[in-house]
Amino acid sequence: VPQRAWTVEQLRSEQLPKKDIIKFLQEHGSDSFLAEHKLLGNIKNVAKTANKDHLVTAYNHLFETKRFK
């Protein structure tokens, strides 16, 4: 089981690129989880459509539901 890579403050910070969060989610989330949160596909394309709040919610949801690969 992966550990949380970032704190809530870090997740919301401008310093953390959306692409980093997407990469983490794609590496650790199950396909059904990723599909549900519309996070499947090319990281660049996902970054265009997903806002930061959406990614933070998905990140927290992944750990709450433990839907890891």
Rank of each mutant, 00 (worst) to 15 (best):
1 V>I: 13
1 V>M: 12
1 V>S: 09
1 V>K: 06
2 P>Y: 04
2 P>I: 06
2 P>Q: 05
3 Q>L: 10
3 Q>D: 14
4 R>G: 08
5 A>G: 11
5 A>I: 15
6 W>N: 04
8 V>A: 11
8 V>D: 15
8 V>R: 02
10 Q>P: 02
10 Q>R: 03
11 L>G: 02
11 L>D: 01
12 R>L: 15
12 R>E: 13
12 R>M: 15
12 R>N: 11
12 R>Y: 15
13 S>V: 02
13 S>M: 03
13 S>K: 04
14 E>W: 07
14 E>N: 15
15 Q>L: 11
15 Q>A: 14
17 P>K: 14
18 K>E: 08
18 K>Y: 05
18 K>S: 13
19 K>Y: 14
19 K>I: 14
21 I>T: 01
22 I>K: 01
22 I>N: 00
23 K>E: 14
23 K>Y: 07
23 K>A: 12
24 F>S: 02
24 F>D: 01
26 Q>M: 08
27 E>Y: 04
28 H>F: 11
29 G>W: 01
30 S>V: 05
31 D>E: 15
32 S>R: 12
33 F>T: 00
33 F>K: 00
34 L>G: 02
38 K>R: 10
39 L>R: 01
40 L>I: 12
40 L>W: 10
41 G>R: 06
41 G>L: 03
42 N>T: 14
43 I>N: 05
43 I>T: 08
44 K>W: 12
44 K>Q: 13
44 K>Y: 15
44 K>L: 15
45 N>K: 13
47 A>N: 11
51 N>P: 10
52 K>L: 07
52 K>Q: 05
53 D>K: 06
53 D>V: 06
54 H>N: 12
54 H>Q: 12
56 V>N: 03
56 V>I: 15
56 V>Y: 05
56 V>Q: 04
56 V>W: 04
57 T>G: 10
58 A>D: 01
58 A>H: 02
58 A>S: 07
59 Y>G: 01
59 Y>A: 02
60 N>M: 12
60 N>G: 08
60 N>R: 07
60 N>A: 08
61 H>Y: 11
61 H>G: 10
61 H>W: 09
62 L>M: 08
62 L>H: 01
62 L>A: 01
63 F>P: 00
64 E>M: 09
64 E>K: 07
65 T>P: 02
66 K>C: 11
67 R>N: 12
67 R>F: 05
68 F>H: 03
69 K>R: 14
69 K>Q: 07
